[in-house]
């Protein structure tokens, strides 16, 4: 199996930066996909078909990574050879830990009543705002080359992102999805 390892930013012809133009990425994605998708090789030989599946999959992976803030941040850290799987508690500030505990307790404190939907969406807005802010800090740390700080912010983003997913799941349970 042929390994493809082109840098996702290069693949889309955009500068390696956390701040991206989602419209532009979408356009480039569709443009590239119309060239490499297996449908373009439906009548070709087996090896070309296989290569098309691999390139098209790689492109899908690249697109999915670049449009998701959390995946994009993780990818950039990995490009800088940082280990994102592990971190020491000492890397995280006390303020951050306390903040995380407060938000987590706020979520766990909500009852299962449907009447709590308003509180849930309030909490969601608060977390979403913090997630936005952490993305801005991440972008500026990366731009300044302050990678340890960027990594710490990434772990904060991870926590907020996970919390957002949980809030959404709770919302769905209450809305009867």
């Amino acid at each position: 199996m042929q390994k493809i390892s082109q840098n996702f930013f290069d693949l889309f012809g955009i500068p390696e930066s956390f701040t991206v133009d989602l419209e532009l990425i979408g356009e480039k994605y569709r443009d590239l996909q119309t060239k490499v998708h297996p449908d373009r090789f439906a009548d070709a030989g087996e090896q070309k078909k296989l290569a098309a599946v691999q390139y098209s999959s790689y492109l899908n992976d690249a697109f999915g990574t670049l449009v998701s803030p959390i995946k994009r941040a993780a990818y950039m850290l990995v490009l800088h050879d940082l280990d994102i799987e592990h971190f020491n508690q000492s890397e995280l500030s006390m303020d951050l830990l306390l903040e995380q505990m407060r938000l987590r307790e706020a979520l766990d404190g909500l009852s299962k009543e449907e009447s709590q939907l308003a509180e849930l969406s309030e909490l969601k807005a608060e977390v979403a705002k913090k997630f936005q802010q952490s993305q801005l800090s991440f972008a500026s740390y990366v731009d300044k080359g302050e990678l340890p700080a960027a990594k710490q912010t990434f772990h904060e983003m991870q926590f907020l992102n996970k919390l957002l997913t949980e809030i959404e799941t709770k919302e769905e349970q209450r809305l009867g999805y």
Partner: peptide, 26 residues
């Protein structure tokens, strides 16, 4: 035949992608 020519096919695909990225019509 597929086996002996697969590396060649992969190199060509690489080249085409490269061209597409540089804006040449594929």
């Amino acid at each position: 035949l597929n086996r002996v020519s697969s590396a060649f096919a992969a190199r060509r695909m690489d080249m085409q992608i490269g061209k597409a990225l540089r804006g040449e019509s594929i």
